[in-house]
Amino acid sequence: MDSLLCHELTLALGLARQAALISRTVLSEFFLAQQKSEVDSVTKSDFSPVTVADFAIQALLAGTLSEAFPDDGLVGEESADELRGNPRLLQQVAAVLKVAQGWEARDENHVCDVIDLCKGEGKGRTWVFDPIDGTKTFLKGKQYAINIALLAKREGRGSREEIVSVVACPLLDWTLGTGGGGEVINDASVDKTGRGAVIYCVKGHGVFVEPLFDKTEEEKPRQIPRHAEQVKTVEGLKSVTCWQSLDSGVDTVHENVAEKLGMDFPGNDLLGWVNRWVCLALGVGNTTVWVYKKRDRKAKIWDHAGAMLLFKEVGGKITDVDGKDIVLAEGRLLDQNFGFLAAPEAVHGIVLEAVQGAMREKEETRAGGGSI
């Protein structure tokens, strides 16, 4: 790939593979410990479990990137507060970090220190990452992803833009999207070969996918065609959503939108947002809508930054459900937007009209005293 960002991309790809190795190691140990009822975990404020892998991967990413690019900002999901108060868990994190190659912590305090490099909001050029997106499914041996993104200031504007995206999906089949468009996946669609997928892009240079593990010299990265550009009517829409594990979204709106557009629902059904963006990029789906239950609910930057670029690079358009562009301002939340709407650019306006119509109907039902 001919790009000034080749160094950043190459480093991020190597880190994605090392992080995936950590996740696979921890997952094997977790299942073994589960059988013996010896599982250590803590709980975050949103009640999702945090695993050894979350902390170890964030330490690997933050430690390596801070040394390689000392002037860059870092934003990550985890804080080391829980680790500092749980010596046994900290020992487990430090131990599993030894699986990775290329970066070593000086001691356990160093592990906590590099994790906490990511507690800020990020200014200027910033790396954003989610060490494990889909922790709940990860702990069940189902789909999860490791998200690494690089953002940079947009010239003449206060917001930032995505310039590099690398996503590791250790349980996703890297050949997805080559089956003629008939595939439909969910969190249980696990790659039986064990090779997984890494999908990546530099802005303006297209999207590529290759095996995450056991890549041979003969296997070349596969470039994903700009498939979303080929969709000109709503008949070509394919849904990606989160249905079985619906929590923060409004189910009636999402189902109503699909009905208005004649789209199969739920279609591709994935818990993790990063996996949903990957599904859209690969062409397994091409449309996703997400309306939060409350207006004050804001998305977290590490669930979307970078991964959204993958879909844009194949011809997709992404806004919020009010039709506004997604703003990656400095901060940890996407606080200038409400929800998400991603669709092929040619029909994005039609999908937006359906979404806003469904939202109005919901409000009218609520005002009339009906059930939602």
Rank of each mutant, 00 (worst) to 15 (best):
D2P: 02
E8G: 06
L9C: 04
A16F: 00
A19F: 05
A20K: 02
A20S: 15
I22Q: 01
T25Y: 09
E29T: 07
E38C: 07
D46F: 12
V50E: 07
T51A: 08
A53Y: 05
A53V: 12
F55W: 00
I57Y: 03
L61N: 08
A62C: 10
G63R: 03
N86R: 08
L89S: 14
Q91I: 09
V93H: 04
V96A: 08
W103H: 13
E104R: 15
D107E: 10
N109V: 10
H110Y: 08
D113E: 13
R125N: 14
T126W: 05
F129M: 12
D130F: 07
P131Q: 07
I132V: 15
D133L: 07
T137P: 02
F138G: 00
L139S: 03
R154N: 10
R157D: 10
R157N: 10
R157Q: 15
S159F: 12
I163F: 09
I163E: 06
V166C: 03
L172R: 08
G177K: 00
G180L: 13
G182L: 13
N186C: 13
D187N: 15
A197R: 03
V202D: 01
K203A: 13
G204M: 07
L212E: 02
T216Y: 11
T216E: 15
E217H: 13
Q230T: 11
E235C: 12
K238G: 01
V240P: 01
T241K: 01
L246Y: 05
G249N: 13
H254E: 06
H254S: 09
N256I: 02
N256A: 05
E259Q: 15
L261Q: 04
L261T: 08
G262C: 07
F265V: 12
G267I: 00
V274E: 01
V274S: 03
N275R: 02
R276Q: 15
A281N: 05
W290Q: 05
V291C: 10
W302E: 02
M308Q: 06
F311V: 10
K317M: 08
T319H: 03
V321C: 03
L334K: 04
F338H: 09
L341S: 11
A342T: 07
A343P: 02
P344S: 11
V347G: 05
V347N: 13
G349R: 07
V355Q: 04
G357M: 01
A358L: 09
K362S: 03
